[in-house]
Design a protein around this nucleic acid. Sequence first.
DNA 1: CCTTTTTTTGACTAAACAGTCCATAACTAA
DNA 2: TTAGTTATGGACTGTTTAGTCAAAAAAAGG
Lengths: 178, 178
Amino acid sequence: MEVFWSRGFAATSTDDLLQAMNIGRQSLYNAFGDKRTLYLEALSAYQLKTTSGHLRRLSEPTSALEGIRALLRGLIAEDDRVRCLGCMGVGSVGEFGTTDALLMEQRAKVSAALGTRITERIREGQAGGEIDNGLDAEEASAFVQVTMTGLQLAARAGGGLEELRAIASFATDRLRAV
Amino acid sequence: MEVFWSRGFAATSTDDLLQAMNIGRQSLYNAFGDKRTLYLEALSAYQLKTTSGHLRRLSEPTSALEGIRALLRGLIAEDDRVRCLGCMGVGSVGEFGTTDALLMEQRAKVSAALGTRITERIREGQAGGEIDNGLDAEEASAFVQVTMTGLQLAARAGGGLEELRAIASFATDRLRAV
DNA sequence: CCTTTTTTTGACTAAACAGTCCATAACTAA
DNA sequence: TTAGTTATGGACTGTTTAGTCAAAAAAAGG
């Protein structure tokens, strides 16, 4: 997962994977079938791990708006070496775009689940008067997700911790009721 | 440029390039040196072309906020086949991250130039009372740039024209003075 | 204990890869 | 016309690639 995450699919050789996992070639092919299947499994594992973190932060029991802030700020890893890897899901979009149907399907599921929860949380904030009632909750949710990917790409480009977290907070505050 | 744009660096073979350009192998190596140099030139050409468009739309003589809206909405190509390619610059960030010093330098230049102009335009909007005076103009500019990359990645993921333009407008409106 | 199944090892294959070489063709300029 | 330069075509090289094969080693089961 880490090798694919940092280098992407095409630039990762099977030898890279063998070395990283410290196993023999046949073991890899027995266990995963082929390179692409292993990539899909690695991406699945990545998404499972990260999505649960996103949902947890989003639901932090402070308030709806603070949940969104925690979601966005939480994307940005503190450790430089982790932060500059960005997000493997974002990487897979960049590398494959719309060319892989299975990947698109997998992506759509994760994105929809998160989107639904963000929408809920925004409605909650609107009900509580904390988030601007004039906003369409679904549009705001899509906006939050676009901000997520924008931040993750900026992290991969080498953006600094404080700089990126400030942008995350800035975006969050744009949703606030006046 | 189009081949690298759609497939990225690693997944593009020199044969792909020869076929696309309809030239012989030696001609490519005479003209460009090697694959990486050609990629850098292609990316440069791409950035030159797109950045001038961004600046033009940003400076559209309607108003500052409408300039930002035009910038963000203008990122999203109408033609499905173009839109789903996303942005080659974003692709290069995804593929190389912080691993290529030359690429980072080139990126920083383009981003700084655009960022400066966005900041100016935001200050203009603030002076005119159209954009919220409480915002830090540089932070708002960084936010706009993160939104740009987020939109371009969403485009590469297969996002629809109207959906993405709506998000662009949503983000723009978040800067509006109350 | 022995047999059967699973896992690992390392050698192997065929194709794809980036980049080179050299002879030839096409221009340029006097 | 001709000498000199530049561009092209096509064969070639050595390496890397994803994936396979078969024999040996290890584990599991009775």
